[in-house]
Amino acid sequence: DNDVLVEVHAAGVNLLDSKLRDGEFKLIVPYRPPFILGHDVAGIVVRAGSKVRKFKAGDEVYARPRDGRIGTFAEFIAVEEADAALKPKNLSMEEAASIPLVGL
């Protein structure tokens, strides 16, 4: 109900993704293979949950899905409304996808 479904147009690759891939955090993170990597995304909202108020289908967004909900290397990802923001118009999808986790 609180999620937006985002069609992925760009995904950032960061150090955390490569460390998860290599198993370096397996003692402290709950992910068990197989899983889809990716912590940063920019794309277009294709659907919004019934309780979502900030976004609608067609909105360009960028996001950092919360822990336990990674997977921005997929074609689509559902993220909580609170974890996304409208993409600044002056940024490309690729530029926007490079910001979320690094910005935090």
Rank of each mutant, 00 (worst) to 15 (best):
E95C: 02
N14D: 09
G43R: 01
S92H: 08
A48Q: 04
D1G: 13
L16W: 03
D17W: 00
N14Q: 08
V4I: 15
A10C: 08
A78R: 09
A63Y: 01
D1N: 12
A57S: 12
N2Y: 11
D59G: 03
I28M: 11
H9M: 11
L16I: 14
L16Q: 08
K54C: 13
I70H: 10
V52W: 03
D1A: 14
I70N: 08
G43S: 05
D67S: 14
V6G: 00
G38V: 02
F76W: 06
K87W: 09
G12R: 00
L37P: 01
V6R: 03
P100Q: 04
L101R: 03
E60K: 06
F25D: 04
E75G: 09
K89W: 11
A84P: 04
V61K: 01
K19L: 14
F55C: 06
K89N: 15
E7M: 08
G71D: 10
G58N: 07
G49L: 02
D67G: 13
H39M: 11
V13D: 06
G12A: 07
F55K: 00
L91A: 09
V41F: 02
G68Q: 06
P33D: 15
K54E: 14
F55D: 04
S98T: 10
S18K: 07
A74M: 06
D40M: 01
D40N: 04
R66C: 12
A42R: 00
K87I: 07
G68R: 03
A84T: 02
A63P: 01
K26I: 10
D59P: 03
A11L: 02
